[in-house]
Design a protein around this nucleic acid. Structure first.
Lengths: 233, 233
DNA sequence: AATTACTTTTAGATAAGGCTAAAAATATAT
DNA sequence: ATATATTTTTAGCCTTATCTAAAAGTAATT
């Protein structure tokens, strides 16, 4: 029961960002991690599953709020305020994912949808206490790094499984695709974060790999190998 | 990043109730606990801190969705579907309050605002697991009962402290006013749920009470005594 | 029974966030 | 360099949830 005029809390949160604005900021943040250029309207539209015209509108609003720099036809870039804001949303998302897996027995393929909602809850105390309650985790259940309070993100060194050569060994440290289909597939194959993987053979024909996990041999497609991050041993 | 067309989850939640609709349902639910008659437009408007005209609009929408019965100028009543839906929101609110106090070290005067947001998170699994994680609590931090999954609410027998007579003893089981001001006042006086309270004297003049808690004597106003629930011993 | 007061509803407006279709700008290809 | 294709923006419309002001209904009072 939130009222903009009489409720101080509601006033404070109304002065921040709407759920929709937060989703745009997060999308731009993720896109900036891959490309260094200005993020195009179409790229955002695709990511957020909306229309380019809606993106243009929102991007103007975000520009007014000083979280992005926007030049017509030239795409957008997050300002430092924008980066910090977006990182904070990602921080919340990933901390909630840890909570769901560690405390509520969710599996790693079930957490995304719920975290997508929980990330918008406004309460600094909540997220700080949650962080402490979870013992200050550094990665989410998919191996993605959790930004710290200042929005700094410590990326660990990782390579795609597909880049390993024959007889090399790696430890699974993350996934590139975190769709529930892919994650469930990994579960079925017994592949989890921390799992040791040895490349037994590489097939030139289709780039599929023959790998060893837990003393078992397994053949995986190139698509799989390009969505699994490992740390070389 | 929710999209109505391609995301099954979003589709499901969009088929349910908006945050605003949920707030109206909750308000009507709370009002029905006190009055048995149809709930008036003005009563809802006051509770939700909005205008009567807005209430009329929303009430029509809720009526279309079969969660209230609405007759022009005659107020509304929740249908059984409406009751169940509202009870579920209250259940979520109170479970989250328990979580915040028990696990994240919030005090009982800080939980309401945050629970007000968390109660709108859509995920049956989340709330069931949270319930189990908290060991199936029956009351929230203010002593209010938590509805079960079917929306049934077990009200405990309780009376206002103001109804106790001289030399009677009660155990504090809840509060009527759960504003942070009142709760902080109680903290300051050392009054918590479970606290034993003995009425030493009643002052006819202003209906104030002299009470004993933890071997200490204390004078409290009638206003306080009318906002504290106790169970007679 | 008539007047006044209060409550509720209606009508019309606004703001946020989305859409489609058309126009404008930029990029690509001949 | 011109024509074509693609991207982006604009313009106008829709829905949700609000609001204000006016109209209509109900209740209270003389």
């Amino acid at each position: 029961m939130i009222n903009k005029k009489n409720n101080i809390f509601a006033y404070l949160i109304s002065n921040m960002f709407t759920q929709s604005e937060e989703n745009y900021l997060k999308a731009i943040y993720h896109l900036e991690l891959v490309s260094t250029k200005g993020i195009s309207t179409n790229a955002i539209a695709k990511k957020i599953e909306t229309k380019a015209s809606s993106v243009t509108d929102m991007v103007k609003k975000l520009s007014d709020k000083k979280v992005v720099v926007y030049k017509k036809y030239k795409g957008v870039k997050l300002t430092s305020l924008g980066k910090k804001t977006a990182a904070n949303i990602v921080r919340k998302h990933r901390l909630w994912e840890v909570f769901l897996v560690e405390k509520l027995n969710f599996s790693w393929d079930e957490v995304h949808e719920v975290a997508e909602q929980l990330e918008h809850i406004k309460s600094p105390k909540l997220i700080n206490q949650l962080d402490a309650f979870l013992d200050f985790p550094k990665q989410d259940p998919h191996g993605d790094p959790i930004p710290d309070k200042e929005g700094n993100l410590k990326t660990i060194e990782k390579s795609l499984l597909a880049t390993l050569h024959k007889n090399e060994i790696g430890i699974c440290v993350g996934v590139n695709d975190s769709s529930s289909e892919f994650l469930q597939f990994l579960d079925k194959q017994g592949i989890t974060i921390g799992q040791e993987i040895k490349v037994l053979d590489k097939e030139d024909f289709d780039n599929s790999l023959s790998i060893e996990i837990d003393q078992k041999e397994l053949s995986i497609s190139s698509k799989i190998a390009n969505n699994l991050y490992i740390q070389k041993k």
